[in-house]
Amino acid sequence: MTDSNPTQSSSARRSQEPLVAPTPEPLSFSEASALADRVVENVERVIVGQREAIEDVLIALLGRGHVLIEDVPGVGKTMLARSIARSIDCSFRRVQFTPDLLPSDITGANVFNQRTREFEFQPGPVFANVVLGDEINRAPPKAQSALLEAMEETQVTVDGTTHPLPRPFTVIATQNAVEPSRTYELPIAELDRFMKKIHLGYPEEAAEIEVLDRVVGRHPIEGLEPVAEAEEIRRARESVAAVTVKEPIRTYATRLAAHTREHATLGVSPRGTLALLRAAQGRALLSGREYVTPDDVQREARTVMDHRIVTEEGDDGSLVGRALETVPIP
C-alpha cells in the first residue's frame, strides 16, 4: 500500500494523528471479544430487536468487509449505521444516492484555491470510517462504481492522484426493495464486493413498541457514547484475522462454494469463499472462540453467499440452504 503521503481527513472530527498507520498491534483475544460485545450492547440501546443485524454489521466491520442492507424504507437502516459509527467513536458520513449523483459527489474533487492559486483536493463523503450509502440502487452505475472502487481498494483516485481512505473503512449500503422500476440494479460483479447482504425486516410488535417508547422525546442516538476507539477497532481487526481456521474448515468452505458452482449459473467465487471464512472468523470472535467451527461457517453462509449466486429461476436462497444440508462436514 502506498501511503507515504498520509492525508488528513476532513471528517467532522479532525484528528492530528495519521489515518493510516502501519499494521497495528492486535488486541488480545479476550480484549477484542469484550470490545465486540461492548459495541453490540451499546448499539442495542438504540436499535431494538435487531441483534442479528448488529452482529452482521460488526462482523463485516471487523472482517474488513462491507454490508448491503436490502429492505423497505423506515426500518432503521440508517440508524443502525449511525449507531455503530457512534459507538466506536469514529467518523460517519452518509451519501444519499440519487439519479443525478456524480462520482465526484462521493469521492470528492480538486477545487481551485483562490488564495493559494492551486488546486486543492476536497475529500468527498467517502472519506469516513463508516459510510452509509443510502439507496445505492437509485444512482446510475457510474456513481455506484465510484463507491465500489473505494470499497474494493480502500482508496480513491481523483485526477490521477490516489487518496487512501481512513481505517477502518466500512460501507453500509442500503438498497430499496420496493420501486424496482426506477432503480439501477447492481451488477453481480459489484454485489460480490459486499461481504454480506442482510435484511432487517420489520420489528416484532414488542420491539416496535419499545422503539416508539425510546424514540419519543429525546432520540437515544443523541445520548449514545462511544465505547471503543477507532484505533481499537483497527487492532481488533488484526485479532479477527488471527482467529484460527484449520484445514477442515477451509475444506468445508471450499466444498460449500463448489456445491453452489455445480448447481447454479454463477456460483460463489473464490473471493466469496474468502469472505465466508473472514465472516466466520468474526462470528467465532463474537462467540468468544479463538477458532472457527463449522457452525460459524454455516451461520455466515447465507448472508455471505446468497447474493453471489445467480440461478436460472432467480435464487431465493434455497441453494445455499441445500448446500448446508448436503455437504458433509469434514
Partner: peptide
C-alpha cells in the same frame, strides 16, 4: 448425524 449437520448442532 446428518451430512450437513455440525457436531454442535
Amino acid at each position: 448425524r446428518r451430512d450437513g449437520e455440525s457436531v454442535r448442532s
